[in-house]
């Protein structure tokens, strides 16, 4: 008899909650947990933030009107363009050459491997400012550059100074030293790709160049992109070192202006604001680049900030007006009273 009872209990376990209670629970309002510590911390930070903002506004030594005046001054904009141009060309040289160096480091030829290693060693060791001055003095070492057969006759000759001027020296210095760093970033990215991917590509007989470009590098990009953007942001600010060559980039231009009108702080703020703007644009670009290369690595991509904002607005208006929520909004954005199960908030 007892055995029979045991069996029946196994087959139909009693419900944890009586049915009556389940139906009342389903109708109750959900009150989120309280966090008093969080409120105190928020208040402290808010006060500190208010102090900073108020001092920025009330201390007229900041001379915000002067900042506003010079922010779009033509020569400042020209300087900004100089900075962007330098960054762009140096980044292209840096990452182009860096990728080649990384592939050389990973090649099977000992000579290619050691040359790539030696390059990274030299260009990482010598300070950038010294490299810039060296390139600027290239014309002293080699007044004339000639193109022709190695150790043989030359077909064409050019004056070094006409090629490697201020811009040329700046781009060479920044780009070549950047290549040393990007080579390591690209190499780390390639090494991070699962060995099985290389093997599968080889087993399918895909040509070697195609294996690297189509199979390995796109997967390596996932780890290459964040550090690379970091490097490019470093490069944007690194261009300010080029002031030693008196090349008209943002920092040098601003310096020239405050040398004349002695409004040092406001003009430094002008430069700071522009560097901030450029970095912000790059940070947004990083977000979308990362998202793009996450395809295939994640089952579903996380929503973009724009999507999240749209869904929040839609969910709020629907709660206030009682209008039906569009089906495109995920359920996590539409919490309703009476739902016991709430999906996690920290996404």
């Amino acid at each position: 008899m007892s055995v029979f009872q045991d069996e029946s209990r196994l087959l139909a376990p009693p419900p944890v909650l009586p049915a009556r209670e389940v139906s009342t629970l389903a109708g109750l309002r959900v009150v989120p947990a309280r966090h008093p510590g969080r409120w105190v911390a928020t208040a402290v930070v808010a006060v500190l933030l208010a102090m900073v903002v108020s001092s920025l506004i009330t201390n007229d030594r900041w001379q915000w009107s002067v900042v506003a005046e010079y922010l779009t001054w033509p020569s400042v904009l020209t300087g900004l363009w100089g900075t962007l141009r330098l960054t762009f060309v140096a980044a292209v040289i840096g990452f182009g050459l860096g990728t080649v160096l990384a592939l050389m480091r990973l090649s099977r030829s000992p000579l290619l491997r050691s040359v790539a290693w030696g390059y990274t060693w030299v260009f990482r060791s010598v300070p950038l400012i010294l490299q810039l001055l060296l390139w600027y003095n290239l014309a002293y070492l080699y007044p004339v550059l000639s193109f022709g057969i190695p150790f043989g006759p030359a077909f064409a000759e050019v004056d070094t100074l006409s090629i490697v001027g201020k811009f040329g020296a700046a781009v060479l210095g920044l780009g070549l030293s950047q290549a040393a760093y990007s080579a390591e970033i690209v190499r780390a990215g390639i090494l991070g790709v699962d060995q099985g991917q290389h093997e599968a590509a080889a087993a399918l007989g895909i040509p070697r160049a195609r294996q690297q470009l189509r199979i390995v590098l796109p997967q390596a990009m996932r780890t290459i992109v964040p550090t690379s953007i970091n490097e490019i942001i470093g490069l944007v600010k690194g261009t300010s070192v080029v002031y030693v060559l008196a090349y008209g980039e943002l920092f040098y231009t601003v310096g020239v202006i405050y040398g004349r009108n002695l409004k040092v702080v406001p003009l430094l703020m002008v430069a700071a604001i522009w560097y901030l703007v450029v970095t912000t644009v790059l940070t947004v670009a990083q977000y979308y680049l990362e998202r793009n290369y996450a395809k295939g690595a994640l089952r579903t991509l996380p929503p973009t900030p724009v999507q999240r904002l749209r869904w929040t607005v839609l969910a709020t208006t629907s709660r206030l007006t009682g209008r039906e929520l569009p089906a495109s909004v995920p359920p996590a954005y539409a919490p309703r009273a009476g739902h016991l199960v709430r999906t996690g908030g920290d996404r």
């Binding site: 699962d194 399918l204 040509p207 199979i215 290369y293 295939g296 690595a297």
Partner: peptide, 25 residues
Amino acid sequence: RERDVLRQRTRIGFVFQSFNLFPHL
């Protein structure tokens, strides 16, 4: 040369224990 080995491999299919599909494609 590696190029010719790769060409030979197209006649020999290989299925891996861990699939090794290309996840980004």
